[in-house]
Amino acid sequence: MYDNMIKIEFLSRSQNESFARVAVASFASQLDPTIDELTDVKTAVSEAVTNAIIHGYENGGGMVKIEAFIQGRELTVIISDDGRGIDNISLAMQPLYTSRPDLERSGMGFTVMESFMDNLKVESQNGKGTKIIMKKVFKSLS
């Protein structure tokens, strides 16, 4: 059982990326995070949502879902889409790899998520979408 949780669903439009980032940061604020911890979460959420919009739905229609859970001092954020999925997860997670070179993407999304969160797991199926599970443990208040 979790101490607290939220679920959010929104249209896969780039305008909603900032909403998602702020919503998760607001939820995480109950853990009394440092500014750096909050920035880490916002950056990782931004990258995951952007991936869903640009790669999952290829800037087309679809819904992005966010679930966030707090248990003790740990925040779990799950960002999922029902888009095209990832052909090769290990390749997609390599720094500088991008499936959309036409958009001049940097290919650093997963690397950024891994560096700002304590744990990252990616699940995906072709034609069925992608789920990104990220965890962050917040330092003790004492």
Rank of each mutant, 00 (worst) to 15 (best):
N119H: 14
Q125S: 14
S106N: 14
M108Q: 12
R105N: 06
D118S: 09
D118E: 10
G129K: 12
K128I: 03
M113S: 00
D102S: 12
V122W: 06
M108T: 05
E114T: 01
K128G: 04
T98A: 02
P101Y: 03
T111C: 02
L103F: 06
E123Q: 09
F110A: 08
T130V: 15
E123F: 10
Q125A: 15
G109V: 02
M113T: 00
V112H: 03
E114C: 05
D102F: 04
E104S: 13
F116C: 11
L103P: 05
T98D: 07
T98R: 05
M113E: 00
G107W: 01
G107V: 03
G109S: 15
M113V: 05
S124A: 14
E104T: 06
R100E: 09
Q125L: 08
S99N: 07
L120N: 12
L120E: 04
S99K: 05
R105E: 11
S115W: 04
T130R: 13
S115R: 12
G109D: 12
S106A: 11
K121V: 09
K128M: 14
L103E: 07
T98M: 04
E123L: 14
N126K: 15
K128H: 10
M117S: 12
G127Y: 07
D118F: 09
T98W: 01
M113W: 00
S124P: 00
M108G: 09
Q125V: 10
K128L: 15
F110H: 07
F116G: 02
S124N: 07
N119G: 03
N119C: 02
D118G: 15
F110T: 03
K128N: 10
N119R: 14
M117R: 03
F116T: 08
F110D: 06
M113N: 00
R105F: 00
E123K: 14
M113P: 00
M117A: 09
K121R: 13
Q125M: 15
T98F: 02
G127W: 03
S124H: 04
F116S: 07
R100I: 10
L103A: 10
V112F: 04
S115M: 08
K121W: 01
D118C: 13
S99T: 08
L103I: 02
V122F: 05
L120I: 11
T111L: 01
S106H: 11
F116I: 01
K128Q: 15
E114P: 00
K128P: 01
V122M: 12
V112A: 05
S99F: 00
S124T: 07
T111E: 00
E123M: 09
V112R: 01
M108H: 07
P101N: 03
V112M: 09
R105K: 12
V122S: 14
R100Q: 11
P101I: 07
S106Y: 07
T111K: 02
P101D: 05
N119S: 15
D118L: 11
R105P: 00
L120M: 14
